[in-house]
Computed example of a mutant assay.
Amino acid sequence: MDAYLTAKWLHILSSTVLFGTGIGTAFQMVWAMRSNNPAIIHRTASGVVVADWLFTTPAGLIQPATGLWLIHLQGYPLTEPWLLLTYTLYAVAFVAWVPVVGLQIRIRNLTAKATSVPAAARRAFRIWFALGWPAFLALVAIFWLMVHRPPLWG
């Protein structure tokens, strides 16, 4: 079995799971919040929290491991400019995602027995939504960098 193709396959697969789960759960949360129904929001947020633990977290850990494996196999220096930018963007996505998990749990808990959507859940959702954008845009930029590997600076 070819190590490079294995590493590349695992990297692509985990990036697909990471990005796909992120965009899918984001859509579900937005859709649930639009319902203005605390039972729907609670059920959806519960599923989103589980999806993050089952899919997003493992994929998020596999990404840097397979990325470093690919860097090693291809002989790139770890300080290649496009890689440095990739590390930075991945850190941005991670720093945005960590509080998002807590906010999802908060929304889930706040709506568990609610008869209407609590104001605190709406505030948590607005923050959750705002944090999703830098994570999303960072991952899109990383995809671009992985494909193009541009020369950025000397």
Rank of each mutant, 00 (worst) to 15 (best):
L137M: 07
W9E: 03
Q104L: 08
A119K: 11
A114C: 11
L5N: 11
F19W: 05
I105P: 00
I40H: 05
H11M: 04
H42D: 06
P77N: 13
L68H: 09
A120T: 10
G67D: 02
I12Y: 10
Y87K: 02
V92N: 05
T57V: 15
L73Y: 10
F136M: 12
W31A: 14
V98E: 04
F125W: 13
V50Y: 05
F136G: 01
I41Y: 02
K113M: 11
G47L: 07
P58E: 06
A135Y: 06
F55Y: 09
R149D: 00
A3Y: 12
A141S: 14
G154W: 10
A112H: 12
V48H: 11
L145H: 06
T56C: 08
T21E: 02
A124Q: 08
T6D: 00
A51E: 10
I40N: 04
L13D: 04
F94T: 15
G154I: 08
S46F: 01
M1L: 11
T86Y: 00
F27H: 03
P99Q: 12
L61A: 10
T111I: 00
T66D: 06
T25W: 01
L68R: 07
P150E: 00
V17K: 04
T79E: 13
M1I: 10
S35N: 08
P64C: 03
P77S: 14
R123Q: 14
A120H: 05
R34H: 09
G132M: 06
P150A: 02
F27I: 12
P38M: 12
A120S: 14
Q74K: 12
A32E: 12
R122T: 13
R149L: 02
G47V: 08
P58W: 07
S15W: 10
L61H: 04
A93V: 00
